[in-house]
Amino acid sequence: MVGGSVGYRQGFHHVDEAAGGYYGRNFRMSHAKKIFLWFLMFWMGSSLVLAEPFVQGGPIGSQTSDGYDALGPVVEQPIEFPHNRHAGDMKINCMYCHTYARRSNVSGIPRLDKCMGCHNLIEGVKDRPRIKKLFEYWENKQPIPWKKVHDLPDFVRFNHERHIQRFYFQEKRPIRETCGYCHGDVASMTTARRVKALSMGWCISCHQKDHLEKVGSSVTSHGPNDCWLCHK
């Protein structure tokens, strides 16, 4: 401690300790402890700032600073879509339904006739309440008002196409890894829930990593870090 290392005035200590309180109060905390307390308070204060209660993205806990392990809230969807059945049990490729992901900024919700393409043929489940709802929308030619789960602020552009092209088509990573890096293991959920922070630092932490420049090459570089890549 600072006090200890300075200790060049041992002579005085005894008097002071013997002193008791001149003002009638027994104030016995040691000098070193007090300094320690000050440091503790300073540290707590600065960690409060680090915790960023002011930052957009909701209160602490709705996202973690390292971006992992905070399963977001359950979102009421018009149809409780079972991802675990489709992607999990039946092992349908994510991009079979989210077909726009490889060619557009947005991955997109599958068009309604995509759902119908299969479910028209699957007689066995037609009487299930979820499928009934689906047919209802189809018959009314109404789009399904899905709720957004992985929502980014409006000043942020995220390009699905580039990420899918890079990691799925070029690097041939498994689709569940490619998508799951940001979306979590959707195949184990029913309706999707946010798993990753999707915060700026989280994005950058990945863009700062060394990636192979080309498949099979040994040259590495980090992802692009131009502000205008993501900020619009």
């Binding site: 600072v2 005035r9 002071d16 002193a19 309180g21 104030f27 000098h31 007090k34 300094i35």
Partner: peptide
């Protein structure tokens, strides 16, 4: 630290 402040109280003041 050198002045032993705060709280350096002496009995005879």
């Amino acid at each position: 630290v050198a002045m032993k402040l705060p709280g350096n109280r002496s009995p005879l003041y």
